[in-house]
Design a protein around this nucleic acid. Structure first.
Lengths: 204, 204, 204, 204
DNA sequence: GATGAATGAGGATTCATTCAT
DNA sequence: CATGAATGAATCCTCATTCAT
């Protein structure tokens, strides 16, 4: 392969990657607006400015678009993982994490997309797997924090830190879902969430 | 109208009500197995042993079947309302409620149906309304309990008992959803849920 | 059969006849508003305040309702037959007839119902037959008038009075259809129709 | 775009246009045989040798097929417009036009399709619009002829040439409809139509 | 890679009619 | 005569996907 060919190839790869992103972004928009099942492949293609047939050059099918979106959700967790890894006092870190995660979920898109994926996760094993993987990463980091907190006597002796982690996250997400359904701004909820969780976890 | 006519009318009404129930039950089964959107009206009719056209004599459309199911969910809450109204010591009642509700949600059907309805609630206003109505009934009763507990100094001074109620319920339901996704039996989770909530709420 | 039975029977017959009329009137309304094919049997029954099943006690089917309506159209022609039979000067009578018929067709309902029937007449032989029968009655009377007018030298020597009759009627009806489509009031058209026909027919 | 691509595109466009025509022709046949409402989209697709779904790649829906057919009716008027524009003596031209138009309407298909469109025109505004547009083109040309004839003193002083044009056309079409319903060949009617109209219009 | 025509099964819903009550 | 539940074929249209160009 000549160098120029290689360059061209690279250029084309970039263009291709761009197309993929266009499609993924369009799909996210559609899924948010109308839901996964109500969205047609045509809708996605049209919104992405891609021809219907060409979409199938980039993804094997509609299902796989959702799978990829679910996979991409993972990197949205990065900032929270970073927070949870901070070495300051554990209650402080937990507090910071809750606030940050709640703020993230203050954006309805993030909540709705999660619901969309969660509800598909029940019946589509690969989506379920991804959903749990993403979740576990967060849970793992939070569990570490809790364990550190316990050993530092800042948190009470939790019976099962891993499960508590899950409960904490579920509590935040549950309240975020409520904020969407009731159109209550998340900021009016966050303080209570914080109080509820911290009280349960922090040593007295 | 003669008596015999009235009797006949009653008989027919009963038969009609039975049909409605057949359809609703069939729909619940279908929605559980395949989800709302993957379920065809034909599936429901077939499963209910009703002709396709006749289904439309009993319900205006597929959507309305779901609406009715969502409405019927309400009466499932009755037992929990009863528990929450008990006049024994509030921590005891709360404990009982959490266990009972968790046990109810140990049946995956109950969880999956809830998810199905919740996920439709986002985009279909009437379902959203019903979902919140059902939820509020439970929340209201739980709030009353919390307030009584506070005044009796069994619960700590909660900043907003209503919101705490919601958080409690969301925490239970969230963990139930997890139990379905991870196929962890709910009984392995309940104790932690109990510990998590009680610790947060009960006076120290 | 006792007298009272007979009276009752009569009463019931009247009630039945009333029902039939209710249905027919409802059907006419529906056909006018939505057209024959867009109208469902349910629509007619509902509008008539009759149960769906009962409609079939009065008419064998939807088609037959239209047939009856087409048949009833005939008696609407009575006034025009009467005019055409008047023994005054033939141009005067023709003039009067055209005006009267045009006035009748100034009501869009009459035009639209005619179109509905005419367009069904093409493919449904019994409706076609009725349509032509109604038409022929009018044509016959008009032909008589024309023939009298010719013999009295008030009308020119028409090559075929029967055909001229048909043309006259078609001209009026055609202009009435136009008045509906263009929403031009018939009164702005009638004088021209009058002028057009009279000029063609009256001897100079 | 390279030349070969362009050629290919052209080829495909042609194929597509051909398909559209196949569908339109099939639809015309169906509408003639069974009427617009009795015709199913499946019928059209099957007759056109096109898959059901593909029909919707070419037309947004059944309604739009009819709209297009109505639009295409316009070009059928071309020959008559040409005749009406001829500069020979106006009575001669009018005579020629009437004969030609009557001959065209001697084909029942042309009449039936017109009726089908006309009867839809009442309730579907876009079809109504097209119907009137087509009609107005013919009327306009005929009006011009009448006006020329008046100024050349070959036609009498008509009170409103435009309206007379409409009456002339309606008279011809009305008689054509009758020829279909009564299965009288148009040729037995034409002479009378001619006599009726010419007498009304030509100067004495 | 890009296009959009092509496929035909499947979507929800309505239809005229029947029939047990 | 009156009712409306029951039927299932038919309605128009959309679906995800394929494939020739």
């Amino acid at each position: 392969m000549t160098e120029s060919q290689s360059k061209q190839a690279t250029k084309r790869d970039k263009a291709t990657a761009k197309r993929r992103n266009q499609i993924l972004e369009a799909a996210v928009m559609c899924f948010l607006e109308r839901g996964y099942h109500q969205t047609g492949v045509r809708d996605i293609a049209a919104r992405a400015g891609v021809s219907l047939g060409n979409l199938y050059n980039h993804f094997p099918g509609k299902h796989d678009v959702l799978v990829e979106i679910a996979a991409l959700e993972r990197q949205e967790m990065e900032p929270f993982l970073k927070i949870l890894a901070e070495r300051s006092a554990t209650p402080r870190v937990l507090n910071k994490f809750i606030k940050a995660y709640a703020k993230y979920l203050a954006a309805p898109e993030n909540v709705i997309l999660s619901v969309e994926i969660a509800s598909e996760a029940i019946r589509q094993p690969d989506i379920g797997r991804l959903f749990l993987e993403n979740r576990n990463e967060l849970v793992g980091a939070l569990t570490n924090l809790l364990e550190r907190g316990i050993s530092e006597h800042d948190f009470r002796q939790l019976p099962d830190p891993n499960q508590t982690s899950q409960l904490i996250i579920e509590t935040i997400e549950g309240s975020a879902f409520r904020s969407v359904l009731m159109t209550t701004p998340m900021r009016k909820i966050t303080n209570n969430v914080l109080d509820f969780i911290m009280t349960s976890v922090v040593s007295r």
